[in-house]
Computed example of a mutant assay.
Amino acid sequence: MLKEARAAFDEHGIDTSLEDVARRAGVGIGTLYRHFPARDSLLEAVLRDRFDALTEHGRALLREPEERPVLLDWSRSLAEMATTYRGLTGALMGTLRDEKSDLHASCEAMRRTGAALLRREQEAGRVRADVDTAEFLALLHGAAWAGEQAFDGASDRRDKLVALVLDGLAPARSGAAAG
């Protein structure tokens, strides 16, 4: 059932019809709902591997030498994952705030990893100290969403938008205009 759900979400985004998922899986809608009582339950099952991989990727980056900037690498991975399914960016931002959501725990693990990477870059002086995790993630999801809307999710455009966001988070250079 999960394989068919992935295919449906790949094709139609997160708003795909659950009836379509059931039909693809060769089961009735009641059977689908017995296994996954809500859309978020099905999404969480489909996305858990991706979330866990992104969290682990961030943890591996945290083991890199501290002089190596790693935030852009993780940020691009987050944007890529967020644009895998149309509409996922908005759902992810919503689940970070909704502790009752089935996706909340997975998103929270990613958020903590992103926060640790952000702190590391701030402590190294590569990112402004006044940026908090919520702002950072909102900017990344905004860049991912903009890339998805304006460029059909083209990875080169999405990656450029993410790089522009991180460039904007760099501390002001001496002599640069303050904003």
Score class of each variant (00 low, 15 high):
A116W: 03
E11D: 14
D156I: 12
V162S: 04
R50N: 12
A170P: 06
E19V: 15
R50G: 15
H12F: 15
A163G: 02
F9T: 02
H104N: 10
G142V: 11
L137M: 10
R50S: 15
R112I: 05
R50C: 10
R68N: 04
L92E: 09
R50F: 09
A143I: 07
L96D: 04
A7K: 02
R120I: 11
L137V: 15
E148Q: 15
G147W: 03
G26H: 00
E11T: 08
W74F: 15
D73P: 06
R112K: 14
A60C: 07
H104E: 02
D20K: 09
R119T: 14
L92Q: 13
G90D: 12
R128Y: 09
G58M: 06
A146H: 09
G153D: 08
A144F: 06
A172G: 10
L118C: 10
V27Q: 09
F36Q: 05
E4N: 08
V162M: 15
L166D: 10
D15E: 09
E11R: 14
E67V: 01
L72Y: 00
R173W: 07
R158P: 02
A105F: 06
R120W: 05
E80A: 15
R23H: 10
E19P: 07
E108N: 11
L161W: 07
S75W: 08
L54I: 10
D130W: 04
T55N: 00
R24S: 02
G30P: 11
D15Y: 05
R126F: 07
G125E: 03
H141A: 14
D15C: 07
A60F: 04
R126T: 05
E135I: 13
L118E: 14
F136M: 14
S106V: 07
K100D: 13
L88I: 06
Q149A: 15
A105S: 12
R34C: 08
T83A: 04
M81T: 13
D167I: 11
L140G: 01
T133F: 01
G28Q: 01
R97T: 09
R157F: 08
E11N: 00
E4F: 08
G87S: 01
